[in-house]
Amino acid sequence: MPTKAIVIGGSAGSFQIVIRILELFRPNLPIPVFLCLHRLKQVRKGFEETLNYNASLPVREPFDKENIRPGKIYLAPSNYHLLIERDLSIALSTEHPVLHSRPSIDVCFSSAADVYGEGLLAILLSGANQDGTQGVAAVKKNGGAVVVQDPDDCEISTMCESAIKLTKPDQILTVSNIIEFVSLL
């Protein structure tokens, strides 16, 4: 099954890796990418702009109901959960935080898994809480592929350790291996 979409989740310690990943996507990437990163809830501006600075593809915080397009990187907006509808549009939500997180990686990954099934590739990066654990499990349950950053290579390993404890990922990779992996997509 070819990859139809990529979701990337991360929290503390993931920002620099995300920047490097975003530089590597080829400009004609035929699939969408969803970024769910924990961030300050009262700060709406600056994050999208920073990620866009070196990204090879446009990064944008989508509006609710926006149609999903290939070759675009959708960044979960501050203080919203990002979900995906079956008609391939964005659905945002202000429901309560999950594991103190809004956007929640669990919500984003689970929703993407529900829509893209076997065609989803999920990448979980460094982070300081257990958000992402249920999301990774949902991706695997729906037949998708999961890459988790090697906890030994994480700035903060809690998130990846927790995910690996519940679900066996397809690959556990160091940052440099993740970078190489993404460059081959």
Binding site: H81, L83, I84, E85, R86, A91, S93, E95, V107, S111
Partner: peptide, 9 residues
């Protein structure tokens, strides 16, 4: 209602 968030709730 929007279906994704309705199903989640």
């Amino acid at each position: 209602l929007a279906m994704a968030s309705f199903r989640l709730r």
